[in-house]
Lab assay of single mutants.
Amino acid sequence: NQASVVANQLIPIQTALTLVMMRSEVVTPVGIPAEDIPRLVSMQVNRAVPLGTTLMPDMVKGYA
């Protein structure tokens, strides 16, 4: 099973992502693949992302 990127904390809207905000976890449905974590650093979320939420491509500006 492929690991996805999951929020390690509440990430407020417009926040630039850092490594400490994300973790990898095998979840359903599958979100952004964990191997993309380095690419996500400094990208902004376009909505508030609660703790434990799987990051989906449409939540990160410039990802999809």
Rank of each mutant, 00 (worst) to 15 (best):
N1D: 15
N1W: 10
N1P: 15
N1K: 07
N1M: 14
Q2V: 14
Q2R: 06
Q2I: 09
Q2S: 13
Q2W: 13
Q2H: 13
Q2D: 14
A3M: 11
A3V: 07
A3L: 10
A3H: 14
S4M: 02
S4H: 02
S4L: 03
V5H: 01
V5N: 02
V5R: 00
V6N: 00
V6M: 03
V6A: 03
A7M: 04
A7K: 02
A7Q: 03
N8E: 06
N8Y: 04
N8R: 09
Q9W: 07
Q9D: 06
Q9E: 11
L10N: 15
L10V: 13
L10E: 09
L10G: 11
L10I: 10
I11Y: 01
I11M: 03
I11H: 00
I11F: 02
P12V: 05
P12E: 10
P12D: 07
P12T: 07
P12W: 04
I13A: 15
I13D: 15
Q14G: 12
Q14R: 10
T15C: 08
T15M: 09
T15R: 06
T15K: 08
T15H: 08
A16W: 10
L17K: 00
L17A: 02
L17T: 01
T18R: 07
L19M: 13
L19C: 12
L19S: 07
L19F: 10
L19T: 09
L19A: 12
L19E: 09
V20R: 11
V20W: 12
V20L: 12
V20G: 13
M21Q: 03
M21T: 03
M21F: 04
M22R: 00
M22E: 03
M22I: 10
R23T: 07
R23K: 12
R23P: 04
R23N: 05
S24I: 08
S24A: 15
S24P: 13
S24R: 07
E25Q: 07
E25W: 05
E25Y: 06
E25A: 12
V26I: 14
V26D: 11
V26E: 15
V27H: 02
V27W: 03
V27L: 05
T28S: 15
T28V: 09
T28W: 07
T28L: 09
P29F: 04
P29V: 05
V30I: 14
V30F: 13
G31Y: 03
G31C: 04
G31T: 02
G31P: 00
G31V: 01
G31R: 01
I32T: 02
I32R: 00
I32C: 05
I32Y: 00
I32E: 00
P33R: 09
P33T: 11
P33C: 10
A34E: 09
A34Q: 06
A34P: 05
A34H: 09
A34M: 06
E35A: 10
E35I: 12
E35T: 12
E35S: 12
D36S: 10
D36M: 14
D36A: 11
D36W: 08
I37M: 13
I37F: 03
I37P: 02
I37Q: 04
P38R: 09
P38C: 14
P38K: 12
P38W: 08
P38F: 10
P38A: 13
R39D: 06
R39I: 12
R39F: 10
L40Y: 01
L40D: 01
L40R: 00
L40M: 05
L40F: 01
S42T: 15
S42Y: 08
S42P: 00
S42K: 11
M43F: 07
M43L: 11
M43H: 11
M43Q: 08
M43I: 04
Q44P: 09
Q44F: 14
Q44N: 08
V45M: 07
V45I: 05
V45F: 00
V45Y: 00
V45C: 10
N46P: 02
N46Y: 12
N46E: 13
R47K: 15
R47Q: 15
R47G: 05
A48K: 11
A48V: 13
A48Y: 13
V49L: 09
V49M: 03
V49N: 02
V49I: 15
P50C: 08
L51T: 11
L51P: 11
L51R: 11
L51H: 10
G52P: 02
G52S: 05
G52R: 00
T53K: 09
T53I: 08
T53W: 12
T53S: 12
T53V: 14
T54I: 14
T54M: 04
T54E: 00
T54D: 02
T54S: 04
L55N: 00
L55V: 12
L55S: 01
L55H: 01
L55D: 02
L55G: 00
L55I: 14
M56N: 05
M56L: 14
M56G: 03
P57I: 05
P57S: 12
P57K: 12
P57V: 05
P57G: 07
D58N: 12
D58P: 05
D58M: 10
M59F: 10
M59V: 08
V60D: 03
V60T: 02
V60K: 03
K61R: 13
K61N: 13
K61F: 11
K61W: 08
K61D: 14
K61I: 15
G62E: 09
G62Y: 08
G62A: 12
G62T: 05
G62S: 08
G62M: 12
Y63F: 12
Y63M: 05
Y63W: 12
A64Q: 14
A64S: 14
A64M: 13
A64N: 11
A64T: 13
